[in-house]
């Protein structure tokens, strides 16, 4: 645990008045509040820091303790522990919601060690707020989200069984209602937000529900046409190649793409681009025949 300079977090000097601290806190809170910075983890962390700094510096008792012990807070911890032992049956401190959605665990180890882990008491509103929303990241392979399936996740030591819908996108966030932190002062539980990180190690490029692939074609098949077997994400299919197919020709395999999210039974398309491969290391006979062919054109 490192010493935390709460004054520098709020950008004030040690001589700052209560008014200065309040003003600095409000300004920073407006800048970094999670409601104003959606999906910004950096702002969320910064907000937790300034909230913690304000909890200490806006409370005269806590501020004095912080100023007195300063960076020797570790000795203060031992001192406070002894003191707390004596007051074991004294009033129990309770956490009261300030900015809804933040729990005791949002405070640093430094804060917990120095101030006993409970938020400072003050004349705050004691409204009932929803619990903290939890965020989790789930890494899956592209093939894993081809079909809807159930998966058990462990979030904050609790097992949650969720259905992962087919066709979920990379970076997509789904909400699991009520599986976040406990509500404050009897408010409802927060929600769990799961962000999907989809790794694509397949030969297919994905754009929404459409898939794209490149298929090599030998010169004879391209010229004369014929049947080839191509891989789709769900197995192999036979494809008829038209005679005189040009390099870069694109064909659409309707319904052979990726499942459409939350549209059961609907699939995107697979676009196959032909890359014609020229023969190499020609034999004398082949060279002769190609020369003959060239004379016909």
């Amino acid at each position: 645990m490192a010493f935390i300079d709460y004054y520098s977090i709020l950008g004030v000097t040690k001589k700052a008045t209560e008014g200065d601290i309040k003003k600095a806190y409000r300004k920073l809170a407006r800048k970094y509040h999670p409601d104003l910075n959606p999906n910004d983890k950096e702002a969320e962390q910064k907000f937790k820091e300034i909230n913690e700094a304000n909890e200490v510096l806006s409370n005269p008792e806590n501020r004095k303790k912080y100023d007195d012990h300063g960076e020797h807070w570790q000795h203060a911890e031992a001192y406070e522990k002894a003191k707390q032992q004596q007051k074991q049956n004294a009033q129990q401190q309770t956490y009261q919601g300030d900015f809804g959605g933040y729990s005791e665990s949002d405070f640093s180890d430094f804060f917990s060690a120095t101030f006993g882990g409970s938020k400072a008491k003050g004349g705050r509103r004691e409204a009932k707020f929803r619990g903290q929303d939890f965020n989790a990241k789930l890494e899956l392979n592209l093939e894993d989200v081809y079909r809807s399936h159930k998966q058990t996740l462990t979030v904050n030591a609790k097992n949650i069984r969720i259905t992962i819908p087919a066709g979920v996108e990379n970076g997509q966030i789904i909400k699991i209602k009520g599986h976040g932190g406990k509500g404050v002062n009897g408010g409802p539980n927060g929600d769990l937000y799961i962000e999907f990180s989809i790794r694509n190690t397949t030969q297919f490029r994905r754009d929404g529900s459409n898939l794209y692939a490149s298929v090599d074609l030998d010169i004879y098949k391209a010229l004369l046409g014929g049947e080839i077997t191509v891989d789709t994400i769900d197995g192999k299919v036979k494809l008829t190649v038209k005679p005189e197919t040009q390099n870069g020709t694109k064909v659409k395999l309707t319904g052979k793409g990726f499942p459409k999210y939350k549209k059961e039974g609907q699939f995107g398309d697979l676009y196959v681009t032909y890359t014609i491969k020229m023969p190499v290391n020609l034999t004398a006979k082949e060279k002769e025949l190609f020369t003959e062919l060239s004379k016909l054109r």
């Binding site: 104003l36 959606p38 999906n39 990379n170 970076g171 754009d207 794209y212």
Partner: peptide, 25 residues
């Protein structure tokens, strides 16, 4: 403004996915 931010974040996500799929080629 938040609505605009959300819409832009969603667009960025879609574009990132598109870009990634080209970079992976």
């Amino acid at each position: 403004l938040l609505k605009q931010v959300e819409s832009l974040q969603s667009q960025v996500k879609t574009l990132k996915n598109k870009l990634n799929s080209y970079e992976d080629l």
